[in-house]
Amino acid sequence: MRAVKNLFVLYTGGTIGMLQTAEGLAPAGGFEARMRAHFADSDDSPRLAWRCHELQPLIDSANMQQANWLAMRDAIVEAVEQDGHDGVLLLHGTDTLAYTAAALSFLLLGLDVPVLLTGSMLPAGAPGSDAWDNLRGAFRALEQGQPSGVRLSFGGALLHGARATKVHSEAFEAFAAPARQRHGERAVALPAALSYRQPRQSVKLAVQPLFPGLQAEQLRAVLATGVQALLLECYGSGTGPSDNEDLLAALREARQRGVLLAAISQCAQGSVVFDTYAAGSRLRDSGLISAGGMTREAALGKLFALLGAGLDVQQAEHWFALDLCGELAD
């Protein structure tokens, strides 16, 4: 824990800096000037030094892509290693804020500075907006000192970057860390391939929820798109239609082709423990690995970071099963 003295603010777009257009709210540049003008008139302005960089193109976070995550990672690493910043505040839209927080948690493993993400439900300047409160809260947290790693600061809460999820579409307290059961072995040391210095590439990922009536041909259609990994959202503790031999065969065939198959629970406070039910054991035996108590955001971000680093399926499965930054174990 150390207080940040030289902060890098990375503005990526999102509601916090949007302005009204003829088509509705849209990302707008010049947010640094608006921030400085607001703080100049405030009795609670930040005491630390900070500079702001706008990541182009500014986007509505509903348009977030893996390439944007990689651009954020590059900008953050450059700001820390080349420009000497000792902390990062990333301004982001709320729709995919938890996904980005999770992805960066794994893309920035080993970076020895705190990285906070925040945004707002209403634009800065709108009546009753939460924007300035969220900004002040994030600045204050960094001034007081934060541990290295990625966290989400929003609505008065400070959440682990790989545990947060969006739970409200309108309330200012929009994010929470569901109380999922966390049990997993911590990684003793990280290989160089998973360091924040490791370049990454895009990865073809897919998510498939289980539901009564899911057919094997539907699952095969998803798997036939060339995905490198499939995240299967299972029932309860990791169960699924264990009597559907065709569906189980589709999973086995995909794993034999080199597709990484991982399972999370659909339950907000769930955790995958395959051996609890025979229906779970059959999924495991078809080639799935457990994501334990990881959220969808964390599991996707972790798959992206592992496969994007060039790990093969066996290596990625090994590290996926271990806790890398607090996503699996308390």
Rank of each mutant, 00 (worst) to 15 (best):
P127H: 08
A177Y: 09
L152Y: 09
A216P: 03
Q181K: 05
V188E: 14
E170M: 01
L135T: 04
P178H: 06
S169Y: 00
R200V: 03
Q201R: 14
R163I: 03
A124V: 00
E170K: 04
A193H: 06
A174Q: 11
A141E: 08
V167L: 11
A171D: 13
L117R: 07
R163V: 07
A126T: 10
W132H: 06
K204D: 15
R180E: 06
F154H: 03
A171H: 11
A162H: 01
E173C: 07
Q215W: 08
G184W: 01
V115W: 02
D130T: 11
G145V: 06
F211V: 14
P199T: 05
Q208A: 12
G161R: 10
L214T: 08
A206H: 11
P212C: 11
A216N: 04
A164I: 04
R197W: 09
N134Y: 00
Q198T: 15
W132Y: 14
L194K: 01
L219F: 10
H160M: 06
A126L: 04
D133Y: 01
A174K: 06
G155M: 00
A193C: 09
H183E: 15
S202H: 09
P199M: 01
A162N: 05
P209V: 12
A206R: 10
L223F: 07
A124Q: 09
F172A: 12
G156R: 01
P127C: 02
A164N: 04
V113Y: 03
V207D: 06
L223P: 04
H160R: 10
G155Q: 03
L117P: 00
Y196I: 13
A126H: 05
S120P: 02
Q144E: 14
A221C: 12
P127M: 04
V188D: 14
H160D: 13
L219H: 08
R182L: 15
S202L: 15
S195T: 11
S153Q: 08
L219M: 11
S120Y: 00
A192M: 14
L214N: 11
L219P: 10
L158Y: 09
G213V: 11
Y196A: 12
S153H: 05
A141H: 02
F139K: 01
A124C: 06
P114S: 10
R151D: 05
A157P: 02
R163D: 08
E143C: 02
L159E: 07
S202W: 02
Q215T: 15
T165I: 13
A187F: 05
R197F: 08
V188K: 04
P127I: 04
E217Y: 05
V150I: 11
L117Y: 03
P123C: 04
V150L: 02
G184S: 05
D112T: 02
R197I: 14
V207Q: 14
S129F: 03
R182P: 00
Q181L: 12
F175V: 13
S153D: 09
G125T: 07
R186Q: 10
A179L: 08
F175Y: 12
G119H: 01
L152K: 09
S129G: 09
P147Y: 00
R140S: 10
R220F: 08
V115R: 02
K166Q: 05
S120W: 00
P191R: 09
A177W: 08
A192R: 14
V222E: 07
V115G: 01
L117K: 08
S148P: 14
P199A: 01
H168E: 15
G137S: 12
Q146M: 15
Q208C: 14
A138R: 00
D130P: 07
L159H: 06
S195N: 13
A177F: 13
G161L: 12
